[in-house]
Simulated assay, not measured.
Amino acid sequence: MTEHEERKRRHLDARSLRGLAHPLRMQLLDALRRGGPATASRLAERLGESSGATSYHLRQLASHGFVEDAPEHGKGRERWWRAVDQGLVFDSAEFEGAGPEVRGAAEFYLHEIANTHARELSAWLATRDDWAKDWTQGSDMSDSTLRLTPALAAELVQKMHTLIDGYRDLVTEPDTPEAEQVRIHTHLFPISTD
């Protein structure tokens, strides 16, 4: 894997998880990943927060390596920030045997991600009629039930990620007609059949 590919997805460890598992920090990181570089003031306006709060939490994210300065965007005293990575990987095995603080941070993080996915899907459903027909036909909300072993489930997840990564840089020009950012949620988990 090249360094460029590594920067696209960061594997969370106990230290970085503790630095990220806060609702505003997760929102700030997501806003920078989706909207590109911004100042604390601009992010505060977008998220309905104070610039003092966004500044503090951006510095916390920077101390854990999630964001960095984007000096090429700033003028004078303006401090611009950008996301370092474009995705995060949560591996449950990383946190086996962790103490209660880390387990609590992991639970918070996972539940916040699930809530974010639900909000994003609900927002899409509420606004889908505002989009061109090509976008409504190009969207997907489906589910499948398969019978797999843990090894086959892990293989499927890896193949899905590889497929998605193959589309990452296909539209590189910012002014490409009809190109929009898209969100892809994948969830794979066992279910009880009792």
Rank of each mutant, 00 (worst) to 15 (best):
D143T: 15
E49T: 11
A98E: 02
S51M: 11
S41H: 15
R128H: 13
S50C: 10
G19V: 02
P23Q: 15
A153M: 04
G19S: 10
R33C: 02
D130F: 13
S139W: 03
P150E: 10
A154D: 13
F90G: 02
A151V: 07
A40E: 02
A126N: 10
R119P: 01
A126H: 12
D91E: 08
L43P: 00
G87F: 00
G36W: 14
A106H: 00
S55T: 15
A62V: 07
D140E: 13
S41I: 14
G104N: 07
T116F: 06
H57K: 13
W135T: 03
D140K: 13
E45V: 11
E107Y: 05
K133F: 13
P37R: 07
Q27L: 12
L156V: 09
A123R: 15
V157I: 15
E112F: 08
L156I: 06
G36P: 03
R33T: 04
V67W: 02
H73N: 14
W124H: 05
S144P: 02
D140P: 00
H64G: 07
A153H: 04
T127V: 14
L28F: 04
E72L: 08
D140G: 12
R59F: 11
E78H: 08
T54S: 07
E45G: 09
R15A: 12
D134V: 14
M141P: 01
H111N: 15
E68A: 07
E96Y: 11
A21G: 04
E155I: 02
L29Y: 01
A31W: 05
R33M: 09
V67R: 01
H64L: 05
S142I: 08
Y109A: 03
H22T: 09
L47G: 03
G65H: 07
P23K: 11
H73S: 10
K133S: 12
N115L: 09
S139C: 05
R18V: 06
D30M: 06
E120R: 14
G48H: 05
G48Y: 06
L29W: 03
I113Y: 09
L88M: 08
